[in-house]
């Protein structure tokens, strides 16, 4: 049994008198693909933000690759790569320039940079498009580029916040295939969230289900099905989290993103 790369103990995050994450605990062992599932507003993104040094927890303990995100944020940041829910590329730069900027920010040794960019762009099938502006890329291409970018500094953990949201089935398939290969080739531990239960069932070695800020179940997909008596993971998920539809209040940034989609069609 290898040591766990991600350890969360009694993690708490409050916004005013609303408890977004309520004393959750979980561990992700090295080399595992870990699926973090939950309805909208359950606390998935808040948890990822705490794991990735973006938000400060109000209670509990965290260890990412052996470091505390509060005490040693820069060491933690060097240990993970992240693909956010929304694109975080610079559309006015080319694919190669986006990659280069990242490798400089993460201090990838100069001797390695070029080779690493070439390998990764080949890996996600974008090498031929390296000199094109990212603003001309499709949603799927952007996502692939972001995965390649996140891997440049050889992170031990890759965080993916809904990496396949809004993509067609072909692209989703392809992305999971990449990620599976990655786990083997680059020895990366993957932590992802998704709304697509069949994806989680197929890809994740371990799953945790979060609802109302609490972890309601963890284990393998098979164990969750057994526990709830459901035929598929989706059945299990509905049994665990109920039928009601969640309304998460949109922050100004989300409203802006909606506007952007309306105006720019992306």
């Amino acid at each position: 049994m290898t040591a766990s790369l991600i350890v969360a103990r009694d993690l708490v995050k409050r916004f005013g008198d609303f408890t977004a994450v309520d004393h959750i605990s979980f561990e992700v062992p090295e080399g595992v693909v870990f699926g973090f599932l939950g309805p909208n507003g359950a606390g998935k993104t808040t948890t990822i933000k705490m794991l990735t040094t973006v938000l400060r927890p109000d209670g509990g303990r965290l260890s990412i690759a052996g470091h505390d995100p509060i005490e040693e944020p820069l060491l933690v940041r060097r240990a993970f790569g992240i693909v956010f829910q929304d694109p975080s590329l610079d559309g006015e730069l080319t694919a190669a320039e986006n990659m280069e900027l990242h490798s400089v920010l993460y201090r990838v040794p100069r001797a390695e940079r070029r080779e690493r960019i070439e390998i990764l762009l080949h890996f996600v099938g974008l090498w031929e498009r390296r000199a094109d502006y990212v603003k001309r890329f499709s949603g799927g291409m952007k996502r692939r580029l972001e995965i390649a970018r996140a891997l440049q500094h050889r992170p031990r953990i890759l965080f993916l916040d809904e990496p396949t949201a809004g993509l067609d089935p072909q692209t989703r398939n392809q992305i999971w295939q990449f990620l599976r290969e990655l786990c083997c080739d680059e020895h990366v531990t993957v932590f992802f969230t998704t709304h697509y239960m069949e994806e989680a069932e197929r890809v994740a070695d371990r799953i945790a289900v979060i609802d109302h800020g609490r972890i309601v179940a963890q284990g393998t997909a098979a164990a969750l099905r057994q526990q709830t008596g459901g035929r598929t993971l989706e059945d299990a998920f509905i049994t665990l989290t109920g039928h009601s539809i969640r309304e998460a209040e949109a922050a100004p940034i989300d409203r802006m993103r909606t506007m952007r989609r309306v105006w720019l069609g992306r």
């Binding site: 820069l74 940041r77 956010f84 929304d86 975080s88 590329l89 610079d90 920010l105 993460y106």
Partner: peptide, 17 residues
């Protein structure tokens, strides 16, 4: 703009001050 288009996040989680 960078906040809106998401690029700001890329710099904010990078291991630089």
């Amino acid at each position: 703009w960078d906040r809106q288009f998401g690029f700001l996040k890329e710099t904010l989680v990078a291991p630089v001050s």
